[in-house]
């Protein structure tokens, strides 16, 4: 698959490495050029400096031929907007979005986005880590 990732923080960079490891082609976007420092030296894909909520930027990044899009910035609203642009303007079928606010995540999930809520997942994992018997 050809995957577009918006947000090259630790999460985006980690995800890019995983996807490349699985043999996928990756292009990653960020508004901050220093964010690309999170990528390992093995990263083979394209780095695009620009705003992933902007349609022209996404087009430049190859959104028209993308098989999947993932919004992985720290901003829920940015992720939600970019995901809906990917879905409704570029008709990308697989659109994943990180939404930290559990309530917003619920709403956007209801609107048909494939949302991931790190807050709920982390809370559950942390609970398990302390409730687990040694």
């Amino acid at each position: 698959m050809f995957v577009l990732i918006m947000g090259c923080g630790r999460l985006g960079a980690e995800l890019a490495a995983l996807l490349e490891g699985d043999g996928h082609e990756v292009t990653i976007l960020d508004v901050d050029k220093y964010a690309f420092d999170h990528l390992g030296p093995d990263f083979k894909g394209h780095k695009i400096l620009g705003d992933g909520t902007d349609q022209d930027t996404l087009r430049r990044a190859g959104a028209e031929r993308a098989d999947a899009f993932i919004a992985a910035t720290r901003g829920d609203n940015r992720n939600a907007l970019a995901s809906q642009v990917a879905r409704h303007v570029f008709n990308i079928k697989r659109v994943g979005s990180v939404i930290f606010d559990p309530i917003r995540e619920e709403v956007y999930h209801g609107l048909g986005l494939r949302t991931i809520n790190p807050t709920k997942i982390e809370a559950r994992l942390l609970r398990e880590s302390i409730e687990r018997e040694d």
Binding site: G75, N77, A80, A82, V107, Y108, L111
Partner: peptide, 8 residues
């Protein structure tokens, strides 16, 4: 993005 979220 904020305006869209508020409305949605």
């Amino acid at each position: 993005d904020d305006n869209l979220t508020v409305c949605q």
